[in-house]
Amino acid sequence: MAEMVFQRTKGLQDRPFHYCPGCTHGIIHRLVAEVLEELDVLDKAIGVAPVGCSVFAYDYFNCDMQEAAHGRAPAVATGIKRVHPDKVVFSYQGDGDLASIGTAEIVHAAMRGEKITTIFVNNAIYGMTGGQMAPTTLVGQKATTSPFGRDKDHAGSPIRMSEMLATLDGPAYIERVTVTTPAHVRKAKKAIKKAFQAQIERKGFTMIEVLSTCPTNWGLTPVEALRWLEENMIPYYPLGVYKTSEEVK
């Protein structure tokens, strides 16, 4: 008799993703969902969806969800967590949402040490609105609003959120990961699990930044996109743990 070696996580609803072929949002959704299931907290999880490509995250995660205004997910998550301190609260945000319009909200949620987990998906571009320049777009990278490539003198250098937030006392755990290879996927899941565990143990604010691809707006095939990420994004956004508070160590 055949042995069951893989099945869909209960953390996701039985619904096809709307994401483009080769986009890594799907993998990241699944990792978060698997972690919630494995930690047995699906029935006490409350997620906050952003504005951006993952705006429909509330249709996919199999737990209570709130849809936030653009950039405000950390404030919404703060409101939820203060009402339900015993529940597991997470925000799922892209780079436009978190690193541009919602910078104040993420910095202050981190500063307060809100006991929430933020999944920060960084693909160096605005996906949903059609490939405009993001605060995380690399210097020289072409986008519809930086058609000649991002000019450092004109638009500045991209923002490194994990490094920036790691300077604060509030965060308990911050790590940057990616999902370009099976090894990286396993590592990313470990990081996400560690973050949720730290939240459950009320250690402080936790964030996992996941470097992600956008083949459609980068104008690359899915395989090329994975390679582009490794060759261009990782050198600028090095993977690794940026903050582990004493309590988490």
Partner: peptide, 8 residues
Amino acid sequence: NMVYGAAG
């Protein structure tokens, strides 16, 4: 937006 979260 905290009000939104808490009310929700």
